[in-house]
Amino acid sequence: MKSGGVKTEISRGSLNRYRIEVARIGQWLTRLPFIPIICLLPLFVFGIFGPLLYLHDPHAPNLLIAMQSPAWMAGGNWAYPLGTDQVGRDLLTRLIEGARSSLIVAIFGVLFSGLLGIFLGILAGFAGGKTDNFIMRIVDTFMAIPQIFLMLIIAAALRRAGILGLTPIIIAIAISMWVPYARMVRGETLSLKQREFVALARVTGCSSRRIMLKHIFPGVINIIVVMATTQLGGAIMAEAGMSFLGVGVQPPNTAWGLMISESNKYITSGAWWIPTFAGILITITILGSNLLGDWLRDALDPRTRQAMKKIKRN
């Protein structure tokens, strides 16, 4: 920037603006919740970049090196950092492969259960009367059935019907996990529909559909975002549970829950690392999703947001 004259002024101006922009992004970054993000990192990094990170072929067994210990223990080596599983596949590669199914199931499971729950919740709360009664009795029915039992039935039935891959798990999660959304959204809708702006929309001539979409829906987004984040952990747990019980992901593909199921007997017979690392990943992922949900709830609420800023400043 030695050319001088007007040009320098301009570039200096834009440089300053650039610096301000960087500073602002920096400030925004410091407000992000680091612990939840770190907890969720394995799921997302492994799930998205999976095949790029493979150390070995996740499906090639090698019985000669079955149940090799992790690298830092006697008998381990760094070619297999976390050791190998019961048929000699690299454990880390298996964990990376399993993350993808878990991620897909969690995201689509939460998406579909959320959409179903929001739709039925708004409909019940807004329409009231018979519609409300009908939907809420369905909710009660669903709440009376143990969740894991319901998922088992749905996933097993869909598998029998010949639907393969992750679809049965996603459908099972969507059908059994929409209930809390519906209840929450219905409650919020009941209070929103009493608000004056809904009356104004009616007076202006809006249809019920328009009021639900334009005036009620934005009001429930906040609580939905928070719930969905927390439910992400729930969905991973559900997938793990289903895989563990044999109706989830099918071998030779894998998922974290399935890895525990296949190897739980080794936990006492010496090869503890096979189920343990999968269990640790499930635990920190669920923990991260719960923590992120808590953080989002505070961050999205204007009252606590102010308080948070003040605490940060002091």
């Binding site: 608000r195 004056e196 702006f197 009356a199 104004l200 929309a201 934005p218």
Partner: peptide, 8 residues
């Protein structure tokens, strides 16, 4: 005071 939707 209440008749306008706060989100729009």
């Amino acid at each position: 005071l209440m008749a306008l939707n706060p989100v729009y």
